[in-house]
């Protein structure tokens, strides 16, 4: 799972509707998988990101390249260096193994071979 997906994901246990984002990473294994740089996609996704959550999550896995405050996305001239750094974090950083834990209900979503297990128990649906 790439970090861009993690940034979009909140707990979906029924009734768990607040404080359910971001899911906390625990015991994770990270892998970098390179892919073509696509500035157009980054511009599309930037306004949808929860920046604070991204910074916090990145720090948990020792990525310190993100600025604390998101540069102004309304202007078109985000520089290439920034976008390339963002590309590396969002689209090339994969969580391969480990767990994600809901900060609200403590549900544990296990990640195996890069695939998070989002299945719920019957009493959670």
């Amino acid at each position: 799972m790439r970090l861009v997906a993690h940034n979009m994901l909140q707990c979906h246990v029924k009734g768990c509707n607040s404080n359910n984002f971001p899911l906390q990473l625990s015991n994770v294994e990270i892998e970098i998988q390179e892919t073509d740089f696509n500035p157009m996609f980054l511009r599309n996704i930037l306004p949808k990101l929860e920046w604070n959550a991204l910074v916090k999550t990145a720090l948990q896995i020792n990525i310190t390249t993100l600025p604390n405050v998101l540069p102004d996305t309304s202007t078109d001239d985000l520089d290439d260096e920034f976008l390339k750094m963002l590309h590396r974090v969002l689209l090339e950083t994969h969580i391969q193994q480990g767990k994600m834990i809901c900060p609200n209900c403590n549900h544990v979503y296990a990640i195996k071979d890069g695939i998070p297990n989002m299945l719920l128990n019957e009493n959670e649906t």
Partner: peptide
């Protein structure tokens, strides 16, 4: 996974709903 497709994969029963943030 074996076919190395590009998308992110989730093991999910969509009948249980899903948890993506609004407007994703």
């Amino acid at each position: 996974l074996d076919r190395e497709i590009e998308g992110d994969l989730f093991l999910q029963d969509v009948g249980q709903g899903m948890g993506f943030r609004p407007g994703t």
